[in-house]
């Protein structure tokens, strides 16, 4: 792996962690919006009857997203460890190959063979594990897209229900807007994570 590729791999993994941290914050905002919406719907009583079950959906979505992102965060930490391991193993393998070139006619040159083969094998194992982990992470990120899409549908329904809530119209519309914006942010952050991971695969 070339130096720039190593750098881009470290940067990509770090940027994924940052994006996921943002997704987590937004999911928490949705959760707050759900609690707020529930309070408004309760106050609105009959006028917001249709809105009440929606607040439960919003809350569920926020919870699902937080759980998914928590899990993905753990995977992202593991991906970082794998990146470090792969970097170390690649460096070791390259250095041992360099030793081989520099030994000339050293009496004990052949004693290096096993270490060199093992280092090469460990490098390949690390690379395989890393790639398999990237694939898993891409799948998990795709799974975060589902609640984000569902949140947008719920936001659209919320707007309709809000329109029948009389003086609570503005408050409930604000909730719908908030959910919609959050869903958009999650969608775009997750998309950036997936792009970053795809770049890692591409640079391989």
């Amino acid at each position: 792996m070339k130096k720039n590729q190593v750098k881009s791999q470290f940067v990509a993994v770090a940027s994924i962690a940052a994006e996921l941290s943002d997704v987590m914050n937004v999911a928490k905002e949705i959760s707050l919006a759900a609690a707020n919406a529930k309070a408004i719907a309760f106050r609105a009583g009959e006028k917001a009857k249709g809105f009440q079950p929606i607040t439960d959906f919003i809350n569920e979505l926020a919870k699902d997203t937080i759980n998914l992102v928590n899990n993905i965060n753990l995977q992202a930490v593991k991906l970082y460890q794998l990146t470090v391991n792969e970097h170390k193993m690649t460096a070791a393998s390259n250095q041992l190959a360099r030793v081989k070139k520099l030994t000339g006619n050293a009496a004990y040159e052949a004693s290096m063979n096993t270490s060199q083969e093992q280092a090469e094998q460990r490098k390949m194992d690390c690379r395989r594990e890393f790639q398999s982990h990237v694939d898993q992470l891409l799948e998990q990120l795709a799974s975060v897209m589902h609640p984000a899409r569902a949140a947008r549908v719920i936001a659209a329904n919320s707007r309709i229900e809000a329109s029948q809530a009389g003086e609570y119209l503005q408050s409930l519309q604000a909730v719908a807007e908030s959910v919609d914006n959050a869903a958009l942010v999650i969608h775009s952050n997750v998309q950036r994570c997936r792009t970053a991971l795809s770049i890692i695969n591409f640079t391989d």
Binding site: A106, Y108, M112
Partner: peptide, 16 residues
């Protein structure tokens, strides 16, 4: 210095 150092030591001792 690792590679030149190990390469130099291999003139005197095997890795094991």
């Amino acid at each position: 210095l690792f590679a030149p150092m190990l390469a130099a030591v291999l003139h005197h001792a095997p890795v094991e």
